[in-house]
Design a protein around this nucleic acid. Structure first.
Length: 117
DNA sequence: ATAATGACATGTT
DNA sequence: TAACATGCCATTA
């Protein structure tokens, strides 16, 4: 079971980073991947979160379009949307999917005055 | 060992 | 909040 987890691996770093995402903000898979040291490994972030322990605030991680990309029978996108709303994050439904305004809620790990991008 | 798949990102068209 | 191709890397068949 837990054999996929290796100490000090990319997966463990992802977990650590996701736990650092402040309540009321969201982060993208690519952002987490970059902080974990592999900017192009966003897919691994998704894989790790799917298998992550329930104490990890996985609901704060969404894709770069601001859309909830979860496909899961129990933990649906609708479930995630409800969790985000509880954190005072606005979630809109459009075209059968749930969307978050990234410009508004994106997590900025560095609080410098520089503009990102 | 090879190929296909996946809770994605980025660049090109 | 376009559509498609390519990169990334662990898991599965």
């Amino acid at each position: 079971m837990a054999k996929t987890r290796r100490r000090g691996s990319f997966a463990d770093r992802v977990i650590t980073i996701v736990k650092r995402i402040p309540k009321g903000t969201v982060a993208t898979y690519g952002q987490v991947a970059a902080l974990a040291g592999s900017p192009r490994s966003a897919r691994m972030v998704g894989w790790v979160l799917r298998h992550a322990h329930s104490s990890v605030p996985w609901q704060r991680v969404i894709n770069r379009e601001g859309r909830i990309s979860i496909i899961h029978e129990v933990l649906t996108a609708q479930t995630q949307a409800a969790l985000l709303k509880k954190e005072n994050i606005a979630v809109a439904e459009y075209d059968g999917a749930f969307w978050v305004n990234l410009d508004e809620y994106i997590w900025k790990p560095r609080q410098t005055s520089k503009n990102i991008q």
